[in-house]
Design a protein around this nucleic acid. Structure first.
Lengths: 256, 256
DNA sequence: CAGTGGTCTAGACCACACT
DNA sequence: GTGTGGTCTAGACCACTGC
């Protein structure tokens, strides 16, 4: 269990010493362990004292590294139990990235979403899709389309694009068979953990296909939500275009 | 400079001891100082060592309190200079709550917004407005309407409701004369600092008035953004309904 | 009880800004 | 140089969990 101890001696680089605190370097090493799958979603990581020994620093320094990773929702601390790798499979963080809330404000009032997969095909990336995912035009990708219904009303229409490589073997059947958040399945089946995402929102009108699938009139304004989701290494691993009905729901955002 | 030292002795309450760490209590005291205006936006607060002496705790404990306040954007730390009360008047935090970004992604490309105040009247709060602001129906409130234009194109139509009491003396003239973010004026002129806000987003169609003011067709889908903004004590101090054009801009959101 | 994370302290030293 | 925030350490003790 000896460790490379590749901590920045801050010499020999010559140009741009760029002071990096110890705890940042520890954080980087821990990120590597997460990324490499040494610590898997839902599992506990070694205790603070163990890590302090391993990295040859004080417990306080390890602590500060963990603090930051916890603040970024990569780790979860539980007093008395340990520190755990965050996961999309837990009850109370499910749908962490879904900000659409029913008007009454209680997400549990309408029960879980009903999901219907309309489509799942493999094809070659178009230019814009490729760019968004950091691929090259023509690279193999996977395209999904699904409808989410709440209280038996179609509410969300989503088109999803995934890079073909990491998601080899993903089929409509496996998606339909899986109960729980899609990102939880990505974690367990493909080792892809979505860590962070950015969304671009617009108000749009649906095209005929879309209005039919959502069962709304064509002049119904809908919320367009384009999401790019990133993994540990800040690599884009999913492009998603959602169309949200907002007559009985709203998109909630907190500003700080 | 003696201090009340009203730190939780954690006795005598009887029911629910509810352990509260020292740094949380310090944080609470500092919040009071902010709220009371002892430390004003833009100014520096006492140094960590001074505060440690004042509160009779170690510097590390003060530090942790400040850390949390800084994480909530109430304070700003600047190494070598000091810790400052956050403000909406600074260049690099201007429009912190405005998430509408031009399609090219560069908020500075189109220069500052042109503002035009359409309306400013005092009236009595309707039931729903009153509830949102924590007032009673009929309480005096102030209603504003303005249009923000980017690159000479009307882009945002906003209706704003403010409680009459704290904003006594606010007029259309003062608003028009002031150059800079509206929230910065609130800070300097009325001692109201907006700290946090929540927004509800929907896709809607404009009514005739709205479409005329934004110079768009009536069947143009628009992004409706309803915001409630809060001050230090988590008291709602502003209700704002915005209509955003999203043909050349998008609403950007980061998910963590 | 032992093991975990959480708090608090005191002191040394570093990086940065101003003068 | 002085004063500020930032890092790192070592140790003591507290709160929570589960055996």
């Amino acid at each position: 269990m000896a460790y490379p101890a590749e901590l920045d001696s801050s010499a020999s680089t010559g140009i741009a010493p760029a002071f990096s605190p110890l705890y940042q370097q520890i954080k980087g090493l821990m990120l590597k362990s997460l990324q490499a799958g040494e610590w898997k979603p839902g599992e506990s990581i070694p205790s603070e004292v163990e890590l302090a020994v391993r990295f040859r620093v004080s417990q306080g320094t390890v602590r500060k590294a963990i603090d930051e990773l916890a603040a970024e929702n990569l780790l979860m601390r539980r007093q008395g139990k340990g520190t755990f790798v965050a996961t999309h499979a837990e009850q109370h963080v499910r749908y962490r990235f879904l900000k659409l809330i029913p008007d009454d404000g209680d997400p549990s009032s309408e029960g879980p979403a009903q999901r219907a997969f309309i489509d799942c095909k493999r094809l070659r990336a178009a230019a814009d899709t490729a760019r968004a995912l950091g691929l090259r035009s023509g690279d193999p990708i996977l395209q999904l389309r699904r409808v989410l219904s709440f209280a038996n009303q179609p509410t969300i229409l989503e088109d999803i694009w995934l890079p073909g490589g990491p998601f080899k073997g993903l089929t409509a059947e496996r998606l339909s068979a899986y109960h729980g958040p899609m990102y939880a399945l990505f974690e367990t089946e493909f080792g892809v953990r979505m860590v962070r995402a950015q969304e671009k929102l617009r108000a749009v009108l649906p095209d005929p296909d879309q209005s039919a699938l959502l069962k709304v009139a064509q002049n119904t304004p809908l919320l367009s939500v384009e999401r790019i989701a990133f993994t540990y290494d800040d690599k884009a691993m999913e492009l998603r275009r959602g169309l949200y009905r907002t007559d009985k729901h709203y998109y909630r955002n907190e500003l700080n």
